[in-house]
Amino acid sequence: MTEYLLILVSTILVNNFVLVQFLGLCPFMGVSGKLETSIGMAMATTFVLTLSSLCSYLTYTYILQPFGLEYLQTISFILVIAVVVQFTEMVVHKTSPLLYRVLGIFLPLITTNCAVLGVALQNISKQNGFVESILYGFGAAVGFSFVLVLFSAMRERINVADVPTVFKGSAIGMITAGLMALAFMGFTALVQI
């Protein structure tokens, strides 16, 4: 039990995918302009990341490993992720137009989120089990969502600030992300796994 909790704390805070491992920076910078959209993105990512880490675990364990085709993991994970994302998008579009409106264009964007592939690959390299894989994916997603939402609320403030012209937009966003990463260094050595 403690182990699972530690996985969560580790992925959310200490080894945060965005601010510590610097994965998934493109959607982090791209969709953090508005709070509403970032919340939508956060929800979509959480769902897809959890599901895809589960699916990639299954693919790896039950298809690749038995045939000794571990070296195909990257390409097959990409396949898995793409399918999960597409399928989720279609289902959500049909079943809940409201949710689809909230998630909107973010669902397909997740395909390009390297954190998703990163989680799948790290699950393999860390030799996580079934539950650990899901928790690891979920924790990573929560960590991503957490900083994304906070960052977007902050960016709304920065966007109306009197930032020098050359630093407007993404430049100041990167600086802010850097300062946030600095703040996250406070969690260093909090949990060792």
């Binding site: 690749l64 045939f67 390409i75 097959s76 396949l79 279609m90």
Partner: peptide, 19 residues
């Protein structure tokens, strides 16, 4: 390897097509 990949692609393609 090719067979597995093709199989995977077919399965996923079928799922997406159905969806």
């Amino acid at each position: 390897a090719i067979g597995i990949l093709v199989l995977l692609s077919l399965i996923f393609g079928a799922i997406l097509g159905y969806a």
